[in-house]
């Protein structure tokens, strides 16, 4: 082994000492950059692509991302709608406040926040993990290489339909979530015996702005992009067999949730 010259040892030691400090932000930046590049390359659509082929692919993905998620999204938002109303009754039962405020409270929380966020979290697990596992398996079983070797742009071919499906179907799922959540809230309100469903709807209508729905739709669209694109990124870059696929799947779910929260804040800050 060569012994480094003594005058360089300080700089070398500083560099070596700093390396662990740099590893985490450096790794994050590296990952973020790779993610951006993947998206840029994927959406730089090949000119020779066959729309019919992509459309078929897109339809398949839209069913898998959207239609197949309707039951779980309905279940999750039905419960969160009910919980919102129960808590609203508990917190807002006050002789000075009109009972219809429960409906107002439910409308505001479900349309603005829960409808999108609960849906997004559920779909991080259902859609994000599925996409990551699928692409990760394709990666480790050389199927992505096979696509590339055929002369296909595998990024566009795999990423675009999935992300597009997310962007197009998440608003649909938001509508499902908001509807189910609001209706379930009304049912719970009626069952509570404290207020009637009419009072609930009256309250919901009192401060309703169509912009709330627009905001929810935009947010769900953003979440759809965030969740599917992150899942595509982790899945597409999976390596190391079954373990790598597992890691990619976990990362898709965790990163998806975290970035959904960031995106939620960004949307609120920019659009409200």
């Amino acid at each position: 082994m060569e012994v480094p010259p003594s005058d360089a040892s300080l700089a070398a030691r500083v560099r070596a000492g700093c390396a662990p400090l740099w590893r985490i932000p450096g790794g994050l930046l590296q990952g973020f950059g790779a993610y951006c590049l993947l998206m840029a390359e994927a959406f730089n659509l090949p000119r020779d692509l066959r729309p019919s082929l992509y459309a078929r692919n897109l339809a398949t993905q839209m069913v898998q991302v959207g239609i197949d998620s309707i039951p779980i999204v309905s279940l999750a938002t039905a419960f969160s709608g009910g919980v919102v109303v129960v808590q609203a009754i508990y917190q807002l039962e006050n002789p000075l406040l009109p009972l219809s405020i429960v409906g107002t409270f439910a409308e505001q929380s479900i349309l603005l926040e829960l409808g999108t966020l609960v849906t997004a979290f559920v779909l991080c697990g259902r859609v994000g993990a599925r996409i990551a596992a699928e692409l990760g398996t394709m990666r480790v079983k050389e199927q992505i290489d096979a696509l590339e070797a055929m002369g296909l742009n595998s990024r566009s071919f795999l990423v675009v339909p999935r992300v597009l499906a997310g962007v197009l179907m998440f608003p649909v799922l938001y509508v499902v979530a908001a509807t189910v959540g609001m209706v379930m809230g009304g049912v719970v309100a009626e069952l509570s015996g404290v207020l009637t469903i009419q009072t609930y709807w009256e309250g919901a209508r009192l401060f309703f702005r169509p912009y709330d729905v627009f905001f929810g739709l935009v947010k769900s669209l953003v979440f759809g992009f965030v969740i599917t694109s992150i899942a595509c990124y982790t899945g597409y870059n999976a390596e190391g067999g079954a373990e790598g696929v597992g890691k990619a799947t976990t990362r898709a779910a965790v990163l998806g949730c975290v970035w959904v929260l960031f995106a939620d804040y960004a949307c609120a800050a920019l659009l409200l």
Binding site: R56, A59, T60, M62, V63, G66, I67, I70, M169, V172
Partner: peptide, 8 residues
């Protein structure tokens, strides 16, 4: 699939 998506 197309019909399902369109319907939704």
């Amino acid at each position: 699939n197309e019909i399902k998506v369109g319907l939704a």
